[in-house]
Design a protein around this nucleic acid. Structure first.
Lengths: 210, 210
DNA sequence: TTAGTATACGGAGGGTGCCTCCGTTTAGCA
DNA sequence: TGCTAAACGGAGGCACCCTCCGTATACTAA
């Protein structure tokens, strides 16, 4: 969301829907906007970051004019896709925290994070530009992701499912590079994540550094 | 270097000129190739990674046809620029090690590394693609960079100018992220590098972790 | 229910950038 | 000093990003 022009807009932790700042958008417009973001996710994931704007408009079943009305340029669309992914990660954190036992919630959240990381990987090059243009985007996304980790990890810690001396931020700092570093093979990444999970779990052997 | 087709080619640490595998290239061709890489470095650094192939050919004073003869596509050119940068870093390491006192050599090498990092930063998005297409490129570059650090740091350590328990790889692992992480301001990066330098130097206060 | 209007839609077309093709030029050799 | 393989240059094809504007439609007020 976040209207294109808003510059000095501060997003509170759980951004929620901050709609209706201006007139509330016509129904068809809102529907098409959502169709477009969904189509972009599909097409990017199928064809890679090189997918054309035409292909995305077609997948959404609208004309390119409509696409460009909603997203004045390619980067805005990429940004929207990314932001949606991050928000989805936050939603997932809330959902698993509400529906699952503390430890299974952690595992489910890890899965979701890997999905998120995969998209980010695909769009890495374009996201890099987006981050340069809007440094806020990166920091806000990071903050929301950290909140997601906190939500799940704090809860598990309070329930005694993860060790006392570990924070959401700690886990994020360990997991992020594993998922983001392209030179780590998926198979190795899987092992590393399991290793992190095991180390995070309460009852793991405790090492004291010399 | 590295002919475009070569796939299973293993580059020994200091790659040196492995020319003359095929016939030795006509004089004008070699000259133009060098002109093109130099022009690309200039233009990328002036106009950013978005610079057009036409602009680069123009800067080099040749036609686009010539550009594409030498670099079949944009990525190949970016790759050549990067590789030149890495080789230049290696050359610098050798030069400062030969010409300067051990500690000033370390300082001079840090400067050179920051220049290298700046180019890498500019071309990050395109390099990412290049790395995906040729994983060797990344690992070979990394190896050569590590050798450069080793050369300078080992020498300084043996001369008693840097502390005993520090390796070239250690320093590289500290310095790289500082120079590469876009979310670190140049001013902060400068401070961090000075901090690393000071910590590396022999005679720095020694901390023992609890 | 209907007429009026602000809003949104579609897609042809302008502009630019990557890359190809081929006629022309030239370096290196006998 | 000719001959030829190699290299050069740049017009033009193609694909992609984005704009523009005539058409269609959701909402509102009577």
């Amino acid at each position: 969301m976040t209207t294109q022009k808003g510059d000095t807009e501060v997003v509170t932790r759980p951004p929620e829907t901050d709609e209706a700042l201006a007139r509330p958008m016509r129904a068809d417009a809102r529907r098409n906007r959502e169709l477009l973001v969904a189509a972009a996710r599909t097409v990017f994931s199928d064809q890679g970051a090189g997918a054309s704007m035409e292909a995305i408009a077609k997948e959404a079943g609208v004309g390119v004019g409509t696409l460009y009305r909603h997203f004045p340029n390619r980067l805005d669309l990429v940004e929207a896709v990314y932001q949606t992914d991050v928000e989805e990660l936050w939603d997932t954190a809330q959902r698993v925290a509400a529906e699952l036992e503390p430890w299974p919630a952690v595992e489910a959240f890890f899965e979701a994070f890997m999905r998120y990381a995969r998209t980010k990987q695909t769009l890495l090059a374009e996201l890099h530009q987006a981050f340069e243009k809007k440094p806020d985007l990166r920091s806000q996304a990071r903050a929301l992701i950290e909140s997601s980790f906190d939500l799940v990890i704090d809860r598990a810690r309070e329930a005694g499912a993860v060790r006392e001396d570990v924070t959401g931020s700690d886990v994020m700092q360990l997991v992020s590079p594993v998922c983001t570093n392209a030179s780590i093979e998926p198979e190795q990444a899987g092992r590393l994540l399991r290793l992190i999970l095991d180390g995070t779990r309460a009852g793991a052997a405790r090492t004291v550094l010399a």
